[in-house]
Nucleic acid binder design. Sequence first.
DNA 1: TAGTGGTCTAGACCACCTG
DNA 2: AGGTGGTCTAGACCACTAC
Lengths: 249, 249
Amino acid sequence: MARAPSALGLGGSPLYRAIKSQITENLQSGEWGLGEAIPSESRLAERFHVSVGTVRKAVDELVAEKVLVRQQGKGTFVATHNRDRTLYYFFHIVGHDETDKNYPQVELLSFKKDRAGNDAAEQLQIARGDPVFKIQNLLLLAGSPVVLDDITIPVAPFQDLTRDIFKNRDSTIYALYQSRYGINVIRSVERLRANLADSACNKHLGIRPGGPVLEIRRVAYTYHDTPVELRVSRVNTTHHEYLSELSNS
Amino acid sequence: MARAPSALGLGGSPLYRAIKSQITENLQSGEWGLGEAIPSESRLAERFHVSVGTVRKAVDELVAEKVLVRQQGKGTFVATHNRDRTLYYFFHIVGHDETDKNYPQVELLSFKKDRAGNDAAEQLQIARGDPVFKIQNLLLLAGSPVVLDDITIPVAPFQDLTRDIFKNRDSTIYALYQSRYGINVIRSVERLRANLADSACNKHLGIRPGGPVLEIRRVAYTYHDTPVELRVSRVNTTHHEYLSELSNS
DNA sequence: TAGTGGTCTAGACCACCTG
DNA sequence: AGGTGGTCTAGACCACTAC
């Protein structure tokens, strides 16, 4: 019953990786939209001329990467960046007693077009002076200001973005990137350090000058390790903290 | 060619979970020691009376949990908590430019037996007043003091631990827990906040009083979510920072 | 009842390592 | 050459969901 091995596995990589790539391409091309079901495993197996087991292995990895979601008896669906998912995947600020499970309230402080400085250009892998959007957000938890976000994104992938579009988004910022611009944030690197409050922290977070403030510098990436966004957050850790869970599964 | 389904899958859970449990038990009982190879997949399949594919699925999960390590052509080995692995899995302090790939130098400042206070008791899920070891460590990176660790562990699982055993360990602290006490740290939860330096930070980390210091409170867990260790770290983030990578794979 | 994902089997060949 | 893990196939039955 053996079949031709590696029939499609060009470049020496296993077949299921090739299948995974093809599925990813269909995802990116929009053939299967957000939240929709993709074809059943047996149909995919026919379409790609491989066995169901091979499709399963490809889908397994995409599920592990949270790109797809399986539902037994129903089908396999394209994951969406909704509040339940993204927010708590990339948002790590909780109350000291961790009871804070409310969504943060967001206040847009400023939205402007600017040019990339040295640091932003390097982090976003664009040229210095390239146009970027600079956005300042204030996050309130249980009514009090806790996080001050300075977001920098290149203009290029977000051409038609305006203050109104940004402000009137339905859900999270990453959901906006995904639904309107087809950009899927799948990875982030955060660097944290302790600082002393400057006037902005004092003004917006109510930390007294010279008080402690947690600074988080995050770069968010999409496929192929392409940087999408640089975000510098300043956190008032008087009643909240940054939560990092490291498990193995 | 069908076989009796769920022949061993007691309790409604899939067979490969049962196999996984049996492998884990053999691991914990010490039948297969650290760094040793476990029997080949075909032998395990015979031993447990299942097919190789089922064994593979069980081993897959244990590999994902970093309990086992596969090496093509050689075999499957029991993971060890050596510097290459644990250290960089649970140690997140890097230089601002991330060039710091040197092992930290450790200086033991104090080691004493004490009784658990309210907070430690709660975090470690033991009774208030239960005996604990309290250990203070100073970590130097590139020669300068950067991290001050206050470690609290229950005496119970570490009965015969002494200052000498602790100080003269071969490798990392978690490797000691594993090799001498059979306790495998597999998960940790860290909570970070910004503080102002106290006298201890000033004395050991050279931060001026009132300077910013990053505080990390970590609880490390072994199997069944049993807490093993409470560790409060104070970090001088003048030239170093806490690195958190969140990917999906 | 029909379709989907979830589990399990049995056996093939490949890539890699060791002797 | 023989053993090990890595990939792939083909087909079975189960559990769940929808109609």
